[in-house]
């Protein structure tokens, strides 16, 4: 567990926890996550076909495509969530920070500490706000109250939630609004200082104001984390991401800078999907 720096009273971004990736000088690795010839199967059903892509460090990469195109499947494979699915099988490789996620000696739980995830539906534990945020630290064996307090404040500040909950940290997280619960889940994910944050349609259940806050938050988070987001909202992908990948029927159709995908995509299928003409 990396040392936790003192919370800052400056802007929320300044207060973000330092990720392990943050300890090294920022190089803007253009291939922080590398997906190589990746096939994925649910039993006999092939869900992904020969996916090859490089996801840059500390940028936001959006996965878009119609339902069933494989974007969430790929996202969930980046931290091996799909290992839990019966009959799940893969070919090819995914590396994060230069290390394969399929290393036989790698514990999946340690991988998931490096690669946090936020889901479509906010899923706070039926515990206090405080206990939700420090849950990952506690399960890692951190019990020092001062360290936990500090980490909780940092994560909540970093998730733009501190000012709203600082006076009721020990109230139930289930009493928060939907938007607050989602930001709490983001705080919980960043509290353990992952290198990568995976977000699976994080705003689909939120109203426009809560969505706007989460989007602002994503733009702040990318200063310290590599973010990969699955979204059905084209405007959202355009607003928050640096690169966008379009998937269709389990294949990566086009992957480029977001500005290119949304102004002048190379593949007609991409343009037809973005303009709502199919999918």
């Amino acid at each position: 567990m990396p040392a936790i720096s003192a919370p800052s009273t400056a802007s929320p971004s300044a207060a973000l926890p330092q990720s392990s990736a943050d300890q090294a000088p920022y190089t803007g690795d253009p291939a922080y996550i590398r997906i190589v010839d990746y096939d994925f199967f649910y039993g006999t059903h092939q869900a992904l076909f020969k996916i090859g892509m490089e996801i840059p460090e500390r940028q936001v990469t959006a996965f878009i495509g119609p339902s069933g195109c494989g974007k969430s499947t790929l996202l969930r494979n980046i931290n091996r969530m799909n290992d839990l699915v019966d009959g799940a099988n893969h070919r090819g490789d995914i590396t994060v920070g230069g290390k394969t996620i399929y290393d036989r000696n790698l514990e999946v739980t340690s991988l998931r500490k490096r690669i946090g995830m936020v889901f479509q539906k906010s899923n706070p534990f039926p515990k206090s706000i405080y206990e939700n945020v420090v849950y990952g630290l506690r399960t890692s064996g951190v019990n020092d109250r001062r360290v936990l307090d500090q980490a909780c404040e940092e994560a909540l500040r970093g998730s733009a939630l501190w000012d709203e909950v600082k006076d009721r940290l020990h109230h139930s997280a289930l009493g928060l609004s939907g938007g607050q619960q989602q930001r709490l889940c983001i705080a919980r994910a960043v509290a353990i200082k992952p290198e990568v944050l995976l977000m699976d349609e994080p705003c689909s259940a939120l109203d426009p104001i809560a969505t706007g806050r989460v989007e602002e938050l994503i733009l702040e988070l990318k200063k310290q984390f590599t973010v990969v987001i699955v979204t059905h909202n084209m405007q959202q992908a355009a607003r928050v991401s640096d690169k966008t990948a379009f998937f269709y029927l389990g294949k990566l159709i086009e992957y480029d800078k977001t500005i290119t995908i949304f102004t002048n995509p190379s593949v007609k299928q991409t343009e037809d999907y973005i303009t709502g003409r199919f999918g």
């Binding site: 084209m234 405007q235 355009a238 949304f262 102004t263 995509p265 343009e271 973005i274 303009t275 709502g276």
Partner: peptide, 9 residues
């Protein structure tokens, strides 16, 4: 209508 790509152009 939130036009995009060629529609926006």
């Amino acid at each position: 209508q939130n036009p995009m790509v060629r529609d926006l152009r």
